[in-house]
Design a protein around this nucleic acid. Structure first.
Lengths: 138, 138
DNA sequence: GTTTATGCAAATTCTTTGCAATACT
DNA sequence: AGTATTGCAAAGAATTTGCATAAAC
């Protein structure tokens, strides 16, 4: 996988401590992170406002995408392939034991037959259950 | 469909103007409503705080459920069958033209093959596209 | 009459914005 | 040097909480 610097360069963004830090945090975790998850992980290295702006910039540049969640708070995860609108048609899995969310990139969403007159542009599936790491712990 | 009063009684909740108003608003619209949608529709009949509390109460009692959304804001819709955990395994359709979300109750989510070791308890599918009312308007 | 729900005020938390100072290329 | 990014302060939303009043059963 590309390193933080390469990702930023490819998107025409400057390399800064906060951006690298956020990217590394995403790369170090297989599951989706919320704004507050990131704040905890990154400590007080930089301002909360910078984190808001960093996340928005990354969303615009398709470096990260939003992960759907039952609960309120938005979570984010790295986009795996940085081309096209791949980031639609994701399957996200949320474990009810450890409460983490992850993208199941290898799982694809089956074709859904919509009612007459409806057309689909993208689909996001959120599955809740128990992940492999928590199997048996329930 | 049960009327507002019956729904409330069945859940052991008192019938009040705000609760009836919120229930009627949901029954009058086929699509999901956010907190601010409801505020607009209900006007200043009651306090914003009451609306927060009413929505939370309805969520707890499984009268409404959260509808997933790409964007931040939480939306809610009536649960169709008030028994069991039916409200899982929903398909929600969001129209990119009129931006409304609705539950497609007649569509079911096909079985998904999860990676080894993962078990699924519920699934929520969010499809984005164009609804029948907006077909051709794009 | 007793219990539950509401309204109001205020406290928290979340998110955005403006602008000067700083860091990147 | 020139431009993009950050930090700080402050504004603006969104959401929650406490408590006295009012409404439902």
């Amino acid at each position: 996988m590309k390193d933080a610097n390469e990702i930023l360069k490819a998107k025409g963004l400057r390399t800064t401590a906060s951006r690298s830090g956020v990217l590394e945090a995403f790369r170090a975790h297989h599951h989706a992170l919320s704004h507050s998850d990131l704040e905890k992980r990154l400590g007080k290295a930089f301002d909360r406002v910078t984190l808001y702006r960093t996340l928005n910039t990354f969303l615009e540049k398709d470096i990260i995408h939003k992960v759907l969640d039952d609960e309120g708070s938005a979570k984010y995860a790295l986009c795996q392939h940085s081309d096209g609108d791949h980031h639609h048609n994701h399957v996200h899995f949320k474990c009810r034991v450890c409460t983490t969310s992850e993208c199941l990139t290898e799982v694809s969403i089956p074709g859904i037959k919509l009612p007459e007159g409806y057309t689909s542009a993208s689909a996001n599936l959120l599955i809740e259950g128990v992940c492999i790491r928590c199997y048996g712990k329930e």
